[in-house]
Design a protein around this nucleic acid. Structure first.
Lengths: 158, 158
DNA sequence: GAGGTTCTACTCGGATAGTTAGTGTCCGAGTCGCCATGG
DNA sequence: CCATGGCGACTCGGACACTAACTATCCGAGTAGAACCTC
């Protein structure tokens, strides 16, 4: 079980965008420079965040990315699942119904106990991430960090 | 984030071994037949469980696998981490210290807030799986299943 | 009949190829801002 | 000086190679049981 490395990129990128003034944008190239990351590949991840509704993108000069909704309505789970997908890491293939030891279908009306417990664990993980918003992240950063981010990234909106 | 398909194999295999009389064993070939799985690859996973101390293996005729300790002392987490490894899915590469927006090392004495929350979520997941033992799994199975398993797999120990 | 020896078959264990998901890159379509031009 | 048209550069968006991990497989080392032979 491994999350893509780009998950970290997405989390930091969204956190940085949250530090900008509302309406301001930053381009993928700027963010790549800011974090020293491959520009094209970072852009790909930002596109995933747009598809997930976390970010909004404007094209053309002075375009770029910005938060699609207030920072306190964007959770870490939103970002992680935008990058990694929302499918559960454990998938039950009904092994109990295969092979010589296969259980009868009528014995399998309830979902497999093992699968249910794995789903519980996944839901605990999701709940833990859902409880943290980008506003919470922003609140923990020293003000100096926000100032530096704005200087390096911010471009005023129209 | 995806768990290997063989995780399911390991969980069901250990659960089946827990249904046998203490001291009894079942071979990898038997278990593969029982679940209709590739014998050699299943054996590989069972070996991982042996390395993790979940199972014990005996070689030679009438050899095979058995639980290394009582079922109430084997958790689902033990099995999952035996197969998938115990490393966390999210690794912090200190992105905040890279690029033009790099934070000063003295600003980074505390671990990154994002990494800490990701670690919290992972620990919640682990705690959820650690709370379930194979004895719990065994308790939910109908008695008929255990009987069938014993008939198909069990070979008495010395 | 009892004991020792050999042999055989069965077990696990590690080293070796094939296939999917993540990583990285490139180029194209669209759009906004700027500049030159004319009134 | 002001409005307008065209141009140019910058932006995102999707399509194409490369690498690592999971999947699958094979063969070899070791061992316990059984058969056999001898006494």
């Amino acid at each position: 079980m491994k999350l893509p490395e780009s998950t970290e990129w997405a989390l930091h990128a969204v956190a940085s965008l949250a530090q900008l003034e509302p309406g301001s944008t930053a381009s993928a190239a700027q963010l790549a420079e800011y974090f020293d990351l491959p520009p094209a590949y970072l852009a790909k991840q930002l596109q995933s965040l747009v598809r997930a509704g976390v970010l909004a993108a404007n094209t053309g000069p002075r375009g770029g990315f910005r938060l699609a909704r207030p920072a306190d309505q964007v959770t870490m789970l939103d970002i992680v699942e935008a990058i990694d997908g929302s499918s559960a890491p454990y998938v039950c293939r009904e092994l109990r119904q295969q092979g010589t030891g296969a259980a009868a279908p009528e014995e399998c009306r309830e979902t497999c106990f093992l699968a249910a417990r794995m789903a519980d664990a996944h839901e605990a993980w999701r709940a833990s991430l859902r409880a943290v918003t980008i506003a919470d992240v922003h609140a923990t950063l020293p003000p100096a960090v926000g100032d530096r981010t704005r200087v390096l990234l911010e471009r005023p909106g129209r």
